[in-house]
Design a protein around this nucleic acid. Structure first.
Lengths: 252, 252
DNA sequence: GTTTCGATATCGGTT
DNA sequence: AACCGATGTCGAAAC
């Protein structure tokens, strides 16, 4: 992980540095200091001149961080063109994105630090506990949802969205299952209700609807009951994975 | 904007640095190098040891960036407790969040750089083109949606969500308006349809539903037509704000 | 604290 | 390229 760095660069010095470093695919380039930042595109934003940390990655993503929060103040998921210039003795960066048309402009009023890191690609990243994983697991073990449940299909398109799990219960009734990896809200109930209505109209028979999630909000549960739908508690993670780190093999 | 920095620190050196710097409220602290990162909480994740950039802000937010993307690989919006230690000669950071219970653990296998920046609070940030702004504007000028429209209320709770704009048309019919600041999808149509159904059942009369957005997806438009609902094109931004930066006063 | 909803959402997958 | 849905969504406002 190589590193190049400048402290308190002048305008033209900063421009040279950025021109050189931003050409490199693996570089993560940062500039910190007092900037003036503008954004215009899907929306538009301005702010007083102040302290920012600019980060540009090798894939063309750009983000400007302020003193707080995980989310950057301004950003671009993709930069298609970068323009560097000096205006009135101040280095200026203009980042352009073609689709949607968007621009971020940074005037480096007082750059304190500019640096570049070589970042190797991230490998072996694994996320446990996604809804996709939960769906796979329940597809293999539908009895976790209900004894006697037989899986018919997954991700069934209905014309108004895809049904997560489509099954038949012990009494032979059709069952539509909507999964949520987190606490289910009214929105999930609406989704389920929409699927049940659609399928019911298509097949011309009674269809059960089950919302399967680790928890439900109170309003969602009330709505479920009003609509004659059901809730089943299903945890997204295997028990061990939600333990404290001291008890986790991961952290051993 | 003060700055403290260490290059290629040893484990205990890094621990001392972090202990000192993380105590300061205004500090934005970064460590770059080869790490091993683990996360466990609502979900869980692992990855191979590799290059990361750790950023911890004064508000307790933490993020770990990889070589690409705006989104960090791992993060914590809030850190309630930080623990620093040395394990087998390697500096280790454990960040804990109480609610929901979550942990991020970073083992600094080969720290290349550690630095701290004093970041002043962001001031004067203004975002133009939010849905809230669009709603205000349309509430003042409902004729933009339709000639003869009279506003009755905004953000009306229905038991299944809030209606953006509630109005009466020239013929005296009730109108439910759903706003979207971007291209409207099937989800927006579904939301609108729910509101129209609910209001219609409550008042016992025919209710019109209008989806007002700068654009609508084709499937969403078809669905609107099937349900007897309407679409009105309404731009989120004043025309000038979506111009190219050369033409923008903002960028002059 | 819980719930809801907007977001320049981002991101990935599928059509 | 458009579209759809999940996200460890985050974040703020309303209750």
């Amino acid at each position: 992980m190589l590193l190049a760095q400048l402290q308190r660069p002048g305008a033209s010095e900063l421009i040279s540095f950025l021109t050189e470093q931003l050409g490199q695919r693996e570089a993560l380039v940062q500039v910190a200091g007092e900037f003036e930042v503008l954004y215009s595109g899907r929306a538009a934003s301005t702010a007083d001149a102040g302290d920012f940390l600019l980060m540009i990655k090798g894939d063309g993503s750009l983000q400007l961080h302020s003193h707080r929060g995980v989310k950057p103040v301004n950003w671009q998921p993709q930069t298609d063109a970068l323009d560097l210039s000096v205006e009135d003795g101040v280095a200026v960066l203009l980042s352009e994105r073609r689709s949607p048309p968007e621009f971020v402009r940074v005037a480096f009023l007082e750059p304190v630090l500019a640096q570049s890191l070589r970042m190797q690609e991230l490998t072996g990243f694994v996320l446990i506990g996604s809804e996709a994983e939960m769906q796979q697991s329940l597809a293999r073990n539908p009895e976790v949802i209900e004894e006697g449940l037989t899986l018919l299909d997954r991700e069934v398109p209905t014309g108004v969205g895809g049904i997560d799990l489509y099954a038949r219960d012990a009494q032979g009734r059709l069952v539509v299952v909507e999964l949520k990896r987190g606490k289910a809200t009214q929105e999930a109930v609406h989704q389920l209700s929409r699927y049940v209505e659609t399928v019911s109209a298509q097949v011309g028979e009674q269809v059960r609807g089950i919302l399967a999630a680790p928890a439900v909000s109170r309003p969602a549960l009330l709505q479920l009951e009003r609509l004659g739908l059901e809730f089943r508690e299903v945890s997204a993670l295997p028990d061990s994975a939600s333990d404290a780190p001291e008890q986790l093999p991961l952290f051993g």
